[in-house]
Amino acid sequence: MRFGVVRFPGSCDEEDALHACRRFGEAELLWHEDRDVRGVDAVVVPGGFTYGDYLRVGAIAALSPVMAAVRDFAREGGPVLGICNGFQVLCEARLLPGALLPNVGLRFTCREVEVEVANVSSPFTVACPPGRRLTVPVKHFTGRFHAPARELDAIETRGQVVFRYAAGQNPNGSERDIAGVSNEAGNVLGLMPHPEHASDPLTGSSDGGLVFESLARWVEATGGTVPVGSASPGWSPTPAGRHTSSAVSG
């Protein structure tokens, strides 16, 4: 299992993501000017302030050469995890639905929150015990997930809501407490909380490690791609009998 973590000018959390990935596999940095993803099994687009977040958060990074490669990788079903600014980049790259707006409080907010796993059969959650709440930090100014109501309904129906802030924990005013959302195929996930900062008990929670562990297990079990166009709600690889739920949440 090999993770690739993209480094853009202005990325901040790429080293953190590398540390978290290396607990569950090999990991290397991808450079923003790369024209391919160097054969990795999963791509992580980490947090930060790419290109200073000038123009609009994530907008410039979405146009970088490596993102063209990431788009191709995703189209072929490869798993892509965008965290915080990475989520924003993936929205700008049209790999994910919706958009991220400034927090309701109009302040940068850094704190631990609890999230619920809303779809336990995603490539990013197969290692999460059902019903388990994860304690993971958020740290962002532009983290309020927004989409038109009809699109939100569709997203929910298709099981694309993968993580939800637990009751009373929504730090930014995200619609329907959405903390993490996937594309239709389920292989691209945007997550506002930072699982990479919650992967070592010494620095707080280790719950976020489950996201990377899920990816590692899933890649090992499936060879690493979601059949494109599967788009099934709660698509489940059912590898090695590890997880068979096809529950749709929402």
């Binding site: 959390d13 953190d16 850094c110 930072h194 900062h197 010494l202 707080g204």
Partner: peptide, 16 residues
Amino acid sequence: AYEQYDSYVGSRTVRR
């Protein structure tokens, strides 16, 4: 005040 600051980045912070 301190919730407006990122105290996590770097993954070194044992006591924040």
